[in-house]
Design a protein around this nucleic acid. Structure first.
Length: 973
RNA sequence: GCGGAGGUUGCCAAGCCAGGUCAAAGGCGUAGGGUUCAGAUCCCUAUCACGUAGGUGUUCGCGAGUUCGAAUCUCGCCCUCCGCACCA
């Protein structure tokens, strides 16, 4: 006898199977020549705190794939490790040492999830002054979480990126990259705190945490015996220059910059120094001193006036602005202000006449805009003066957007005339550089940016920075080759890879602090966290051999990895040189060859622009083509109750709580069924019970029929129509669910095997006309398939049900069900559709009849010739227009005699805008309805009589003539 | 700014690529009925509006267009979300 399993028992079932899997080491995957292999990876977690349900989504999807592939007969390797490179772990250590109360409280919250008493929490917290104890604690915690969620991981292969053996591996990798010439050294700009003397990352900032670096063009205009250096984001507008702007009361300097004499704002001096310029201040002076003097344009070396402007911000870039009144609202307004109040000019010894004579130069034209767009916009927005900051910003944005994207350089732009502004910008910069008239000046793209120490953050150019040159010889081509031959699911993410590949250039790969591997050729630098995690999937293939044989890190030489990963070198010599047993070496080489390539890498799309692209590049650089990653699959992040999860806001559900709060299988089902991988999932606690209910029904139903022999009634068993129907449906579901798995439509898979399956089963179970034996054996047949369909998603409950059903071995390794196509019959499925639509129609009429309650429903099936007519239209593929269809049908004698009714069918088709589904023949439709009459009667609570059109023995209101294929006519009395 | 995704009936969310069978799947919520000692679960039914015969009307961000026909294709506009390099 079956029984309802109480919720508390779920936890026990889950524990029981987890223990069994672990005890029997069933997911420890070793090379097996009898099976095809499948090597699946997900990124290793970062153990600096407890993981939450969001992380769980990715690992769960990975596990579902792993389990599905296993049932498909693959030898599946699904490993995991811990990533500890970089600064976050050290950050914890530092904050614990500093007794930072806010941070401590957050760590306590995480610790309480795993420890029972406050004493234990405090004791553990004190241990966190040691980075390794921190790492080990959370790495173990995460392992326990993963086990409690039923992940089918091979734990023997775990490691951390701080392990000496891993460090040896990364050393080898960077040696290889260096040999290839892909590592370079040079200057690179980054956010920098002058007070701390360090580069600053997001975590180090008090304000402006999303600031990026913006490059201004420092443009050198000839002035006296040096240059007046103006900063601009639109260097192409230098052809429209009319004058120069200087702030009259701010302090400027003459300074020697890399050997040249420059005039810039005093405030720019320190920035230039930070940006790796040699700066020596010659003298300071107030801006007013040079106002009224002249400097020279770059493109035609003509003299232009230096004028005063209050809007100049000397704290931004060089503090010198060149004026393009034709295309810059600020400049236009400033010039207009001077025209309007020439008295301002006198104190600088400039005549009003001189300023009035400045001709505004228009050098960009935009089709569909007036000649002087800047003026139009300024007037439309009604900008009154330089003080109208907001309106001027708006005008600047608008003019820039239109001119940059739609504008063309006019004939006064020298060699750039006639080209589109958006195309020409880079060329103008190159031209200026070549003439030694432009340099870069970096600024943050927003202000303020404040370091945690309270200092204003600047941009520094650090010399001697190491980077990976993704534009190195041949590298990108190989990477494109890899991407183009790789499967990306969902495919829509491919374009993100493509744009990343396009902009990927030089990327710093080492920094001076944090945990990690020292650069082999410059050990002061530590390889940073994203750069040491690109080909580590290869490390899984041998990690367990290294640890179980207790190899010394010293033994893992470049020669060793060359042999194991690249097959380079002689086994005997490598063995002699490293002291590693020959047989072991061979085993490792073979195991690598067995598992590689990585068949599928699964993670979140936010990794595309960095980690995943790097992984593709580094594989392309180091490994031969047959060892490149085969497929990347992605799933989006998780929101909680409509909001982004954030530890500081406190709205997170930790992974560790899932098994107790919901149950592992419930969570797994939720994570698969709430959203397709490509879309953001919203975890709403309110929806959890409905998932749990579906699983309970799964357990109840499979439990109820576990003692019957599965059997598919067919042919000479003469099953009832509804049994044929349910067998067809169930096999369709198998087909569909398998297809969904293959195409990574996991939500659709989940819907099929839970909701759709339950609905079908419920419909079947309500049919009392099925003989008991037939019903029980059919249900057993369904359950036996169903348990396996569910197994990747609900492994624990499926193991339990599988055991009850008497299945062979573990369901985790049972063969994935295949659809019995002989049992799939669309006509039978369609026929049942007609039955339910008939029931729906009768219900609707009953509702409309209101007070008059009918007790008998007469159902009339359409005549056979109508079915032939419908088939004919379908086959003919004529345009669905009244005339065309009429012509087609009336050409047949068979239909001519029904002219009037043909017209009404055709009208109907026109009105419906197409054909509709119906049974194959009148005979079929009649039989099915007749067989279901009893069922319909009990559903509707009235007697149902089915008549065929050919022989309607009772039709008082002459309704039969309205019947159409698939749409019976009704008469209720 | 650059690149990408998206706006669907109370909420969540399919459909859109391959236009017609779409008043538009499924879930949640709500209402009615059944099961139940009761409650929960579970099952059935309904859930845009109107309608005493299966019908009609108005919907898929807004506005145009293509088409016999548009949630689906094209163009423009508005809005939301995500990534953007030293951050793991």
């Amino acid at each position: 006898m079956w029984r309802v399993i109480a919720m508390s028992e779920y936890t026990e079932i889950e524990k029981k199977w987890q223990n069994r899997w672990e005890k029997d080491r069933v997911f420890e995957a070793d090379p097996d020549p009898t099976k095809p292999k499948f090597f699946l990876t997900v990124p290793y977690p970062y153990p600096n705190g407890a993981l939450h349900i969001g992380h769980g989504r990715t690992y769960t999807v990975g596990d579902v794939i792993a389990r599905y592939k296993r049932m498909q007969g693959f030898n599946v390797l699904y490993p995991i490790a811990s990533h500890i490179t970089g600064t976050p772990i050290l950050g914890i250590v530092q904050r614990v040492k500093d007794k930072d109360e806010i941070a401590l409280e957050q760590y306590r919250r995480d610790l309480r999830l795993y420890l029972d008493t406050e004493e234990e929490v405090e004791a553990q917290l004190q241990e966190f002054v040691d980075p390794w104890k921190t790492v080990n604690f959370f790495a173990d915690a995460i392992s326990m979480d993963f086990k409690a969620l039923g992940y089918s991981i091979d734990w023997r292969r775990k490691f951390t990126t701080g392990d000496p053996i891993y460090t040896q591996f990364i050393t080898w990798q960077y040696q290889k990259l260096n040999d290839l010439g892909y590592i370079q050294r040079g200057a690179h700009p980054l956010l920098f705190c002058p007070n701390c003397g360090n580069p600053v990352g997001e975590d180090d900032l008090l304000e402006g945490e999303y600031a990026k670096i913006k490059d201004f063009n420092a443009m050198k205009y000839g002035f006296e015996d040096g240059y007046l250096v103006a900063a601009s984001l639109r260097p192409e507008t230098t052809f429209g220059i009319t004058n120069m702007w200087i702030h009259p009361t701010a302090t400027y300097v003459w300074a020697k910059v890399n050997g040249e004499k420059w005039v810039v704002a005093e405030a720019a001096v320190e920035k230039l120094k930070l940006q790796a310029k040699e700066v020596e201040v010659i003298r300071s002076f107030p801006g007013s001193e040079i106002i009224g003097k002249r400097c020279r344009t770059i493109h035609h070396d003509r003299e232009i006036l230096i004028l005063p402007a209050e809007f100049v911000d000397v704290t931004n870039a060089t503090g010198v602005v060149y004026s393009v009144p034709g295309h810059a609202p600020w400049d236009y307004i400033a010039l207009r202000d001077l025209w309007d109040s020439p008295s301002e000019l006198e104190k600088y010894g400039i005549s009003a006449e001189e300023v009035r004579n400045i001709d505004i130069i228009l050098m960009i034209e935009v089709e569909g805009q007036g000649d002087f767009m800047t003026k139009d916009v300024v007037e439309r927005l009604d900008v009154k003066s330089q003080k109208d900051v907001e309106k001027l910003e708006e005008a600047t944005q608008e003019v820039y957007k239109v001119e940059f994207y739609e504008g063309t350089m006019k004939e006064n732009c020298g060699q750039f005339a006639g080209r589109k502004v958006s195309d020409v910008k880079d060329d103008v910069i190159a031209w200026l550089r070549e003439k030694n008239r432009a340099d870069v000046f970096y600024e943050p793209d927003q202000r303020p940016v404040i370091c945690k120490c309270g200092t204003d953050v600047q941009i520094a150019v650090l010399e001697g920075q190491w980077f990976l040159d993704y534009e190195g010889p041949g590298w990108k081509d190989r990477a494109w080759d890899a991407l183009n031959s790789m499967r990306i699911v969902p495919e829509l993410f491919r374009s993100l890879f493509e744009s990343t590949f396009n902009w990927l250039a030089q990327r710093p790969c080492a920094r001076k602090r944090g945990i990690g591997t020292p650069l082999p050729f410059d050990p002061e630098w530590i390889i940073e966290a994203l750069s040491d995690s690109t080909i580590y999937m290869a490390f899984y293939t041998i990690a367990h051999h290294i640890t179980s044989n207790e190899l010394d890190p010293e033994q893992l030489t470049v020669e060793f990895f060359d042999y194991v990963y690249l097959g380079v070198g002689d086994e005997k010599k490598v063995s002699n040189d490293t002291g590693i047993d020959r047989k072991l070496l061979k085993t490792m080489r073979e195991e690598f060859l067995h598992w590689y390539p990585n068949d599928q890498r699964h993670t979140a799309p936010s990794h595309i622009s960095n980690h995943l692209s790097f992984a593709i590049f580094h594989h392309a650089a180091i490994f031969p083509k047959e060892h490149w990653i085969q497929c990347i699959s992605l799933n989006e992040h998780v929101n909680l109750e409509g909001r982004k999860m954030s530890k500081s806001k406190g709205n997170v559900i930790p992974l560790v709580e899932i098994p107790q709060r919901y149950g592992a299988d419930v969570y797994r089902t939720y994570a698969i069924s709430a959203a397709e991988p490509a879309s953001l999932m919203d975890f709403r606690e309110r929806d959890v019970p409905s998932v749990r209910n579906r699983l309970r029904q799964f357990v109840d139903i499979t439990g109820k029929y576990s003692s019957y022999e599965p059997r598919a009634y067919k042919g000479k068993d003469s099953p009832s129509p509804i049994t044929k129907w349910v067998l067809s449906k169930v096999n369709s579901i198998i087909d569909f669910a398998t297809g969904n798995m293959e195409t990574f439509k996991l939500r659709e898979y989940a819907t099929q095997v839970t909701s759709e399956m339950i609905r079908v089963i419920n419909q079947y179970m309500r049919r009392s006309e099925v003989p008991e034996d037939e019903h029980n054996h059919t249900m057993a047949y369904i359950c036996e398939k169903w348990v396996r369909l569910m197994a990747p998603m609900t492994p624990h409950l499926s193991e339990e049900s599988w055991l009850n059903l008497g299945g062979e071995g573990l369901v985790s390794f049972a063969p994935w069900p295949e659809a019995d196509t002989d049992l799939i019959d669309p006509d039978i499925e369609m026929a049942q559709e007609v039955v339910s639509s008939t029931v729906r129609d009768i219900r609707e009429i009953i509702k409309l009849l209101k007070d008059k309650t009918p007790n008998k429903a007469h159902v009339y099936v359409a005549p056979e010739w109508m079915y032939s007519a419908m088939h004919m239209i379908r086959k003919a593929d004529v345009p669905l227009m009244v005339g065309e269809i009429m012509k087609l049908l009336m050409s047949q004698d068979e239909f001519k005699k029904h002219g009037k009714q043909i017209k009404s069918i055709v009208d109907r088709i026109a009105k419906e805008n197409g054909l509709w589904e119906h049974s194959k023949s009148a005979e079929d439709e009649f039989t099915v309805l007749k067989d279901s009459a009893e069922h319909m009667s009990s559903e509707l609570g009235l007697e149902v009589v089915v008549h065929s059109f050919e022989n309607p023995d009772y039709d008082p209101q002459n309704k039969a003539r309205f019947a159409l294929p698939g749409r019976v006519s009704l008469y209720l009395e």
